[in-house]
Design a binder for these strands. Structure first.
Lengths: 334, 334
DNA sequence: GTGAAAGCGCTAACAC
DNA sequence: GTGTTAGCGCTTTCAC
């Protein structure tokens, strides 16, 4: 594979000139630039990334570590990050931590080893592996979930408020026994959504013992949770569901139990999945600004790469409740 | 940041011994290994990736370039690739080419520059940027779509046969005017699905002029195509749809036109999305073995990295038609 | 404006 | 089994 020396030889200049001509940093004579470019093309020269990064002590790459590649919420974040990063010449590599602290830790190590310029991550939980980034001075920003005990840039959604509003909406629609299926304890978004749910019920002076289930943020867990909740002596007549994968599990459970969503049980789920309007009845959702989360996070990261001394910021974006037919009120009340 | 020399100094050995102890290549005295490990931990030593890769002339990384991060088919492939690659100590970086030949080309350049061990990609089309990989001797394998004119490892699905079977199923169910909404011309899967559709109609001696639409592999395009097809004087009474994002667009269009899926128009779509059983009526689909595609591709890539002289292979996996209510036959026939 | 040369941190001959 | 050392390909002083 052609090296910078090959190009230099072919263009009849030194390697320093080739480097300068190709990177456009220092000024180089017009003719020489042309000659170097020509030689580079002829040889099919591609700069050696590791050599460049070794020398520069940093790669123009940002790592994006997300908890679930199969969750549209996170892939939308990825697009936001990519669009902003590409504009300024950074590449984005996506890593899937799969909600596992161990994989997250592994990817953080890799990011450090590869000397990426920065890391954006949705932290799996109470892990401290992020401390390594801070220690080494690698720029990073957290999305979706804060880092407990770390004073870093973070981009969040006011998910507690959103959960509260969604639950209040269910109350206003006349549902009486409102349940909640949320993610694992310790995962901040899961805790916040539960807290918002409780806020709303408290305001409405409702008591709802035994109507909360916590499970992994996946369809299978929510499916079990829904079966469990709905086969109780006093089942819920409405459910707040903490993400769209879980909504799939709940809808499956309802199908199996022949309980009609929106008629027998009111439903509001987090995340506006593309299919939410296609189920019968259309699913009410809390739409989160995922793309924007990614875009904002990328901008913050770039700012921090440029100036590591900026004070850390917390950006909180709002979510929107989209009321559709699955939360139109219990049948006997319509 | 601590370097290998720092570790060597602290452990009272040479850098070579540190390298050997940490990589476990050559045999090193037990005590020394322990001392080196201890020193490394105490210093929080993380090897410098670029330096290592520069020296080794290759990184233990495989790049996975997929056409659409938001398509569950491709993210499932990603999981297959990751699981296999991680088992043998390779990292996977995901790159989203977004169906754009230009981005694909850009990521291929980056992969070459970073000297990754190999590349797995779903080629956007008739691009020749892959030739660079071949020229440089970087291992690569194509998934989902073959590389025209390149004799490489490739993992495909027999999508033409699957389309044929799906269409034959619609014929058997009594649909009369079967249409097809497929991807852009030149994208092999789109062409193959159309060809399979035509195979089936030919066998059944049907004529179906004007019932084919081609558009980007996205909801919006399919939405327009469906509106167009269904507002014709003689609209189709069934549709074969080439992927799940498109199915979303078609179902939206049916909703707007108040045409009942499965009753007024029979439907079969490619890709078994998690929500396919949740729409009303449940959507018949062609389930592709996405995870397995990724796993097989990763194994082929590893084999090629190990031995670049192996003859290229083509692996073709089968798809499964899942008959659900959306293709149960026209209403007047039930 | 251009070239010579040092050196980023690591691994792998090679010598002992 | 361990140390010495060359060198991977690039960028960047430092001279001129």
């Amino acid at each position: 594979m052609a090296t910078i020396s090959d190009v230099a030889a072919r263009a009849g200049v030194s390697t320093a000139t080739v480097s300068r001509a190709l990177n456009g940093k220092s000024t180089v004579d017009r003719d020489l630039v042309a000659r170097v470019r020509k030689a580079a093309v002829e040889l099919g020269y591609q700069p050696n990334g590791p050599a460049r990064n070794l020398r520069r002590q940093e790669a123009a790459v940002v790592a994006l570590i997300i908890s679930d590649v199969e969750n549209p919420f996170f892939t939308a974040i990825a697009r936001g990050v990519e669009d902003v990063a590409h504009e300024v010449g950074y590449s984005v590599v996506l890593c899937n931590s799969d909600e596992s602290a161990e994989k997250e830790n592994r990817y953080i190590d890799i990011a450090i080893q590869e000397r990426v310029a920065g890391v954006i991550l949705s932290p799996s939980g109470t892990t401290t592996s992020v401390a390594k980034l801070a220690t080494r001075g690698t720029a990073y920003v957290a999305v979706d979930r804060p880092l407990p005990g770390h004073d870093s840039d973070v981009v969040l959604v006011d998910t507690r408020l959103a959960a509260r509003q969604a639950t209040a909406h269910l109350v206003a629609q006349g549902y009486d026994r409102i349940g909640c299926i949320t993610g694992p304890s310790g995962v901040r978004t899961a805790d916040d959504r539960l807290a918002g749910y409780r806020d709303a019920l408290r305001s409405a002076k409702r008591r709802t013992p035994k109507l909360v289930r916590r499970t992994e943020y996946k369809a299978a867990g929510a499916h079990r949770a829904a079966l469990d909740l709905l086969s109780q002596a006093e089942p819920p007549d409405a459910l707040l569901i903490a993400n769209s994968a879980m909504a799939v599990g709940v809808l499956q459970a309802l199908q199996e139990l022949e309980i009609r969503p929106g008629r027998d049980v009111g439903l509001v789920a987090f995340d506006d999945a593309p299919w939410a309007e296609l189920v019968d009845p259309p699913l009410s959702v809390v739409a989160q600004p995922a793309y924007e989360i990614g875009a904002v996070a990328a901008r913050l990261l770039l700012a921090r790469i440029a100036d590591s001394s900026r004070p850390p910021t917390t950006t909180t974006l709002g979510a929107r409740l989209l009321e559709r037919a699955s939360s139109r009120g219990p049948e006997d009340r319509r």
